[in-house]
Write a protein that binds this DNA or RNA. Structure first.
Length: 795
RNA sequence: GCCGGAGUGGCGGAAUUGGUAUACGCGCACGACUCAAAAUCGUGUGUCGCAAGACUUAUGGGUUCAAGUCCCAUCUCCGGCACCA
């Protein structure tokens, strides 16, 4: 047998050589080449690389290396999203310095990342905690503040008791718990720093159409934004107030037999002297406010509410006086916080009206069964009778003077965090308490270090004497600092713009460099970011566009969401389950190439399927690479025609599969080729082609084998193999034979054979001819594919 | 409830987009090498059947010369949204 495949020595050796020669650094944009910006989500430096990082980065490296060999100038940067709670929690628990803790994590993770052997553009890295990075995060915030994209507003916010901070809507999971800590979120009324993402709702939805993204991701964003197109209609109350309601069913206005306000609606408290049953109403409001949203929306469908005695509303279509209710099934935060209720054509209104004995009037014909929530033809609607719902919407709105409007599920993005380890919000308050942005010359606005991390519910920065002193020194007596820091999703909303201009100290990212590299050609990442990071950064880009700071309205041309690597038991990896696979251990025993290739072989990348780790499976990949290591023993003087043909096929297949992120089938094609070579031998030229095809998958091993013949070049700068198009058609092919639609066997024929010739061959085939008993009624012949012979069979 | 996606061997998964279902890998069985084991190599491996053969891509229908692939209905799993007017 051949010498031992010493992956450890090989991998160390080439990683060192690559690093010394900086072969993966990306210099100035080279116009002679097409560019490709491949982005992966920058990791949080938790201090240990887990298998998920390998799945996220090492598999993508296959794509990157193939593109490089295909002559593209590829930008494949990596950096660190290094602000965030874990550092602060380490400070609280173990008295460590968050900065030192994070920096040592980064240093260690860098060495782990290097052990992957990826073609990272290390000269174009960035880190969110670098003051030269967060200077620009702060500067963009101040620009947003000046343009009123950032504002301070009072509102209902999500308070996480575990994290001791406010979090954004997107960071609350479906079951009402915190995305980070898992704690149940409380609703609080607070002043908050917000970004006006809702102003971009239409563009965030409409611009999705042009993106080359998987449809499910686009659809999830559309649903999250939740646009519904409808109309705002005014009802006049007997108090003299105008009540605006939002409806998507203006066509049912004639059936609006009551209106409902959210308990918190301002017109309720405003008219308390006119409400005859005020104490009952007040009670109901208090009860409603004590239920948090989770209980309020999960509360079984039983509807509750109170009629406002002494107040009525006028239906603008019928002129009738209708009752006014408050009920907590109407939400203050959605639409106008009030609805026109149409019990005949809305399930919720129907349930409520039935319970409280309110009139039910049908206006959509075609059923006896109410509620009927579908569209149809109008009845009981005066001059609109006989009109179709869709048409009637417009006609009725026009007649009663309503306005077309969209309303959204999306809320503004709350970005203030009552925590320490983040970007300080660059705002100071004057003695009157009015906020002012910090001028550019004072940026970066440094994060103070003289703080006490003990959680008290008060933001840690409030305890910094240095910060107070700094503000008074610069701005004057009586001025006070903002003490909140930013959501880390702010840091990651623009990081990709910094990578390729990471030493620019005049701009966050120059327009020239942006033109060189943007947009991102392909962004690989986790499905969990669909309605968080992916939405935030799209918004950020559009805000920059409006400020003239970029010319791109969308950052990501293509996006691929990947799945998860599960433990060998099929469960999500977790310390408590004891099913965690440590990549360092795998790399030590089997090699980086093996781990990377195994992850790529598990299944198609780019589907959000979750794959269990299989110890046997990775051993199979290791066996494959060991056989490759000894492959030179099979080099012979020339290839057979069959071998040449298989090479052509494999080159086409592997190239296409990599472009489609189907690394699993690309690997399978390489395995088939190896199996063939070991049996039949391979010419030296083809052996090199094999190595080049494998190079993106097993960069260290192939570099080692390449170096045996080419001392001074690297395989990773060699050209990607192209198929030999001059190969003749195969002389004979195997054609499948069906008789009466059933597979009966195969025959060997020329690819150019005629139907008659093929039928004659089948009639002479010892096995097949016995099945051809009867008159041939019809023959379907698809050259190179199949022949189907239909016989007349007597009854 | 609404909107997506998916159901293929013992397992991960293939299938030129309507043309030999189960590629490739794992696992398993047998054999070779070995005192023995591991490793390695070879052979076999959808199900039933001694065989000829029949059946088989969640289930039931349909279209077609031909269906894993297209159409209709049903079931199950995963993800998103959900008292959103």
């Amino acid at each position: 047998m051949h010498k031992k495949f010493d992956h450890e020595a090989i991998e160390k050796k080439w990683q060192k050589t690559w690093k010394e020669n900086s072969i993966y650094d990306v210099s100035e944009r080279d116009i002679a080449k097409e560019k490709e910006f491949v982005l992966v989500e920058w990791p949080y430096p938790s201090g240990n690389l887990h298998i998920g990082h390998w799945f996220a980065f090492a598999v993508v490296d296959i794509y990157v290396r193939a593109r490089r060999m295909q002559g593209k100038q590829v930008l494949f940067p990596i950096g660190f999203d290094a602000f965030g709670l874990p550092a602060e929690n380490a400070a609280i628990k173990h008295g460590l310095d968050p900065k030192a803790w994070t920096e040592s994590n980064i240093a260690f993770m860098k060495t782990q990342l290097e052990s992957m052997g990826n073609a990272f553009s290390w000269n174009m890295t960035a880190s969110s905690i670098d003051p030269l990075y967060y200077k620009w995060t702060q500067w963009m915030f101040t620009e947003f503040f000046k343009k009123d994209i950032a504002y301070r507003g009072e509102g209902s916010v999500n308070w996480c008791p575990g994290c001791n901070t406010v979090i954004a809507n997107e960071q609350v999971l479906g079951d009402g718990t915190c995305e980070r800590s898992g704690d149940v979120i409380e609703k609080r009324q607070m002043e908050q720093w917000m970004l006006r993402i809702t102003q971009y709702a239409d563009r965030l939805i409409d611009d999705l159409d042009a993106l080359d993204w998987p449809e499910p991701i686009k659809e999830a964003q559309r649903q999250w934004i939740g646009r519904s197109k409808g109309a705002e209609i005014s009802f006049t109350l007997s108090t003299g107030d105008t009540l605006n309601v939002f409806t998507t069913r203006a066509d049912t206005l004639f059936a609006a037999t009551y209106v409902v306000l959210a308990p918190e609606h301002e017109l309720v408290a405003k008219n308390k002297t006119l409400i005859q049953n005020w104490s009952e109403v007040e009670n109901y409001i208090r009860e409603a406010s004590q239920k948090d949203d989770i209980i309020r929306t999960k509360a079984e469908k039983e509807k509750t509410g109170v009629k406002l005695e002494g107040i009525t509303a006028t239906n603008p279509a019928t002129g009738k006086q209708i009752p006014v209710y408050i009920a907590d099934y109407v939400l203050k935060s959605y639409g106008t916080g009030a609805i026109m209720a149409v019990p005949a054509h809305d399930e919720r209104d129907f349930a409520f009206a039935t319970k409280y004995n309110i009139e039910i009037q049908q206006v959509i014909s075609g059923t006896e069964q109410l509620p009927f929530a579908h569209h149809g033809v109008l009845m009981n609607s005066a001059e609109f009778n006989g009109m179709d719902s869709e048409e009637a919407k417009g006609a009725i709105i026009t007649k009663i003077g309503g306005t077309l409007r969209s309303t959204y599920r999306l809320r503004d993005w709350s970005i203030g965090r009552q925590r320490y380890w983040g970007v300080p919000i660059p705002i100071v308050y004057d003695p009157e308490g009015k906020p002012h942005s910090i001028p550019k010359e004072h940026l970066p606005w440094h994060l103070p270090t003289d703080v006490d991390f003990t959680p008290t519910g008060e933001p840690p920065l409030a305890k910094s004497a240095e910060l107070k002193e700094r503000v008074e020194r610069i701005f004057g007596k009586g001025w006070t600092p903002e003490v909140e820091t930013m959501d880390t999703f702010v840091d990651s909303s623009w990081y990709f713009l910094r990578y390729f201009d990471n030493s620019n100290n005049v701009e966050f990212s120059s327009l020239v460099k942006q033109k060189d590299w943007m947009p991102i050609d392909i962004y690989f990442g986790g499905a969990e970011h669909t309605t968080m990071h992916l939405l935030y950064s799209r918004f950020w880009q559009k805000a920059l566009l409006d400020l003239g700071l970029t010319t791109f309205s969308e950052p990501y041309k293509r996006r691929i969401n990947r799945g998860l690597v599960l433990g060998p038991d099929g469960n999500k990896m977790s310390k408590s389950k004891g099913n965690v696979i440590d990549p360092d251990i795998q790399v030590r025993s089997l090699g980086a190439d093996t781990v990377k290739m195994y992850l790529a072989f598990m299944g198609p990348y780019g589907e959000t399927t979750n794959y269990p780790w299989d110890m046997g499976g990775i051993a199979g990949i290791r066996r494959f690479l060991e056989r490759v290591y000894g492959l030179s023993e099979h080099v012979i003087s020339a290839d057979s025609a069959e071998t040449e043909q298989l090479f052509t096929k494999t080159i086409v297949k592997v190239s296409a599969d990599i472009s489609a992120y189907k690394f699993n089938t690309a690997i399978s094609a390489l395995m088939i080729l190896l199996n063939h070579i070991e049996k039949h031998g391979v010419s030296n030229a083809s052996y090199e082609i094999f190595l080049r095809l494998l190079a993106p998958f097993a960069p260290h091993l192939t570099e080692e084998l390449w170096s045996v013949q080419y001392k001074d070049t690297t395989i990773h700068e060699s050209a990607w193999p192209t198929p030999n198009t001059l190969l003749p058609d195969e002389e004979v092919i195997t054609l499948s034979v069906q008789i009466n639609g059933k597979m009966r066997g195969t025959v060997l024929v020329s690819p150019r054979a005629t139907e008659q010739e093929v039928v004659a061959i089948i009639q002479n085939d010892h096995v097949l001819k016995s099945k051809l008993e009867g008159e041939i009624v019809k023959v379907i012949y698809v050259p190179k594919r199949i022949i189907n012979i239909i016989l007349h069979t007597p009854p």
